[in-house]
Design a protein around this nucleic acid. Structure first.
Length: 786
RNA sequence: GCAGGGAUUCCCGAGUGGUCAAAGGGGGCGGGCUCAAGAUCCGCUGCUCAGUGCUUCACAGGUUCGAAUCCUGUUCCCUGCACCA
């Protein structure tokens, strides 16, 4: 026994066995009573859009009308549900599900009885799911006619294999002019097709239609006054009003959601607390006897004479469990042996967590009041239509029983992506199979060939990766880091562990940091301030990423970026043992969520007190005075180095031998001023075209030589306005002294660029080496090699 | 069929209008260290070039001063629902 949600492609979502249709007496939960609330509640929770859509889809609310078609020469009435009452004048036949009991009553005694029986047998032999896959529309005339209640017209009644008995009323009014499915059917059986809606205002109704028009348009050809010309909602409500006035129907709402059939014929489930008494019927187990516990002396071996098929519940063979006295009359009675779907248990476990050791009640109302609802819930997208609907329903039901006062169980939902791995797949059955079928390479259901396909890792398919060997080889921290670094939480991934070694190396590097630093000196150096500012920046970034559950980004910052920064610090001559040791101690809490073991070690090694896991992470990395300019200057140097290196490669081709000297000419101050003017003007949305006039009035423009260059430079500035990064704009705003910055780092630059000396001045203040002064632009000095 | 999500430089993958020739990782190539290997560090990895250039983000159009990013159409892939009246 499965709920509708638990069948996929005509097979059990767990074990892939074929679903077949059987009549059974079952217990249902009336989840449909909560349909409205389940839909409306989606507005009040923070769910990913696709989950919201999937739930909406599953609930499947449709507004429409119930319309009654009396059967000619009979007391029978066919009730139909439609979302398109505006097409009622186009009804040319009525279709009902073959297994609808009404069909049998109608066809009885007519010549069409045999044909109907055949169709019904065909439909019953397959599940709803497979029925959905049928493309052929088949129907049988039932030998009777129905009367269109609004115009009195007689239309034939058919049984159709595409009508679902359990949706709506199991009967459909067919409008071939405006429903493609009805159109196909009408074509097949030679039924008239009538146009009763125009596609566009003013169209002339066609004599023949080559397809159904399913949109909303003005009514036409109505057989009663007052309807032609009405369109969409107006048309629908006018028809409904008329139906209600004449007692032929009414406006109503249908749902796709069905009641939750939660009986399972299995041992493993919560017993349904009902006792069957011959005299009193179904009697609930008295509250003081709850919960009904499963017997633990169950014989799971089937007796030889029991056929396995259909006799799956071993509970039915435990006499001590089965035989009880009726709580009402005391007569001998039988206990219900069906158990609840295990989704019942997952529907409220989080509430039990709030009061786990309570032995009197499932949970204390005060505890639930205090803790509920769950602030942040993380689960797979596959639960969108199962667990997440059941749990929402259960929460509302418990609320109505007075156990707590919350409407929704989960406030914010994050769906992590699924990790996929190759799995055997049968194309013919459209089913993924357990990896054990790889050996035979043959589908156990149809015997067809299997191919491989990427599918979500799951126990049922066995395509899982056992972490133990990886943990043994690289450690649990590596495993954790690898998984976090592989993909962001909401993205899925195909499993591949080729990159795991690089994560292992990275952890080794982090591991070795304290020992490395221990060999450094105590001397402070000019880059110390930069590293400190950089670290604070990283802390802020990390914190923001964690708050947004951007775990991959967070891990990159904590486990990778810091090391990258440290390497730059070393290249720039930094070697302050005390500074960096303190920083490592601050890094440890950032490492902890992903790689707790190594974080604890680092914490202890760098003088942290107690267990790091016991510390709360507070605010971190508050920006300090001067951080921005510190970062700006260093970034300038970094990009300068990149430019200079690029230039060096080009220069080497033109020089005989390796370059020995580099001359850097920084932009004149007026160019910087021009840049700042450009930024100002842009922020003010000033018209750039007339800006040149304003510029020419500035003091620096009085110099004739400068004046000549201004138009060209201004053009460049305008282009750069869009290209500068916020950091670069910051450097320009801060009026970072390029010459001073470079001068302070000439030794560093010389060694990085492999030259003997670095000379630097503002263009115009020294020789124009290599005619490069003309290239000098703020942030991009002229560079010449000799 | 309907709904949702995709297609990025050798590979994985980030990237929602200028910060982009495009993060990060992998791989490859070169260099430092080393007797050597591993580890590690540095550089290169679209084309052109003593520099402000060119051509790229599935394909074809469009909007914009400016598009990987927005719009339209096309192709292909994935996921969910599947004759819901």
């Amino acid at each position: 026994m499965l709920a509708n949600e638990q069948a996929r492609g005509g097979r059990c979502w767990r074990c892939s066995s074929l679903v077949s249709v059987k009549e059974m007496v079952q217990w249902f939960l009336k989840i449909t009573d909560y349909a409205d609330e389940l839909l409306d509640g989606l507005e009040h929770v923070v769910f990913p859009e696709n989950v919201r859509l999937q739930q909406q889809d599953w609930l499947g609310r449709s507004e429409g009308a119930l319309i009654r078609f009396p059967v000619v020469d009979s007391d029978e009435v066919i009730e139909t549900f439609t979302t398109r009452p505006d097409t009622i004048f186009g009804v040319t036949f009525v279709t009902i599900a073959p297994e609808n009991p009404l069909a049998e009553r109608l066809v009885a005694g007519t010549e069409h009885e045999d044909a109907w029986r055949e169709l019904r047998a065909e439909v019953l032999g397959i599940s709803d799911m497979e029925r959905g896959m049928l493309r052929d529309k088949k129907g049988v005339f039932l030998g009777k006619h129905a009367i269109n209640p609004l115009n009195g017209e007689k239309v034939p009644i058919y049984a159709g294999n595409f009508v679902i008995a359990t949706y709506g009323t199991g009967s459909v009014m067919a409008v071939p002019g405006h429903d493609q499915r009805d159109y196909d059917f009408a074509e097949e059986y030679g039924i008239p097709i009538r146009q009763v809606l125009l596609e566009h205002d003013g169209d002339v109704p066609a004599d023949e239609l080559d397809r159904a028009f399913e949109g909303y348009g003005p009514m036409v050809n109505s057989s009663r006054d007052g309807f032609d010309g009405l369109a969409g909602k107006d048309a629908i409500s006018a028809v409904i009003a008329m139906l209600e006035k004449e007692g032929a129907g009414h406006g109503t709402v249908e749902w796709k959601l069905r009641d939750w059939g939660f009986s399972r014929q299995r041992y493993w489930g919560t017993p349904i607390p009902i006792i069957h008494c011959d005299k009193c019927g179904e009697v609930p187990v008295p509250e003081e006897d709850l919960p009904v516990e499963l017997p633990d002396d169950v014989d799971f071996e089937l007796p030889d004479d029991v056929d396995f098929e259909g006799k799956g519940n071993p509970l039915a063979r435990v006499a001590a469990f089965l035989n009880v006295d009726c709580p009402t009359c005391g007569a001998a009675a039988k206990r219900e042996t069906d158990t609840m779907d295990t989704f019942v248990d997952s529907s409220w476990y989080f509430m039990r967590y709030m009061d786990p050791s309570n032995s009197d009640v499932c949970f204390d109302a005060d505890a639930a009041e205090y803790w509920m609802n769950v602030d942040f819930y993380c689960g797979g997208i596959e639960h969108a239509q199962l667990h997440l609907i059941y749990a929402r329903f259960w929460t509302k039901a418990l609320r109505d029983l007075g156990l707590h006062s919350h409407d929704e169980p989960f406030q914010k939902l994050l769906c992590q992506g699924m990790v996929n791995a190759p799995t055997p797949f049968c194309e013919a059955c459209n089913t993924t199979l357990h990896v054990e079928h790889r050996e035979t390479g043959v589908c156990p259901h149809c015997g067809g060939p299997l191919r491989e396909r990427s599918a979500k890792m799951s126990k049922s398919e066995g395509n899982t990766v056992n972490p133990t060997p990886i943990v043994e080889k690289y450690g649990a921290d590596t495993m954790r880091l690898f998984m976090l670094f592989s993909a962001n939480p909401t993205a899925g991934m195909d499993w591949s562990d080729t990159a795991i070694v690089s994560n292992f190396r990275q952890l080794n590097t982090i591991w070795s940091l304290p020992a490395q630093v221990a060999g450094w000196g105590d001397a402070a150096s000019p880059v110390d301030n930069w590293l400190a500012a950089r670290f604070r920046q990283r802390q802020r970034e990390w914190r923001a990423a964690m708050d947004d559950v951007e775990l991959r980004v967070a891990v990159r910052i904590s486990h990778y970026e810091f090391n990258t920064d440290l390497q730059w610090y070393r290249r720039r001559g930094g070697s302050n043992k005390e500074l960096v040791t303190g920083m490592l101690r601050e890094l440890a809490p950032m490492l902890h969520p992903a790689t707790p073991h190594i974080a604890e070690e680092l914490w202890e090694e760098t003088g942290g007190e107690g267990l790091l896991a016991a510390h709360l992470i507070g605010e971190m990395g508050a920006e300090q005075e001067g951080d921005a300019s510190e970062l700006a200057a260093e970034q300038y140097l970094r990009s300068l180095l990149e430019q200079a290196r690029k230039m060096r490669g080009l220069a080497a081709r033109h020089l005989e031998g390796e370059p020995r000297e580099v001359t850097i000419q920084c932009a004149e101050s007026w160019k910087g001023e021009l840049c700042r003017m450009g930024m100002d003007l842009r922020e003010e949305d000033f018209d750039m075209k007339s800006a040149l006039k304003v510029i020419m009035t500035r003091e620096f423009a009085h110099d004739a030589e400068v004046r000549k260059q201004i138009p060209g430079v201004w053009k460049r500035v305008q282009k750069q306005l869009f290209k500068w990064s916020p950091d670069e704009k910051g450097i320009l705003r801060a009026e970072v002294d390029e010459v001073a910055t470079i001068t302070a780092a000439t030794d560093f630059l010389a060694s990085e660029l492999g030259v003997d000396s670095v000379q630097v001045w503002t263009a115009g203040e020294g020789d124009d080496v290599g005619d490069k002064a003309r290239f000098a632009f703020p942030l991009e000095p002229g560079i010449a090699y000799q």
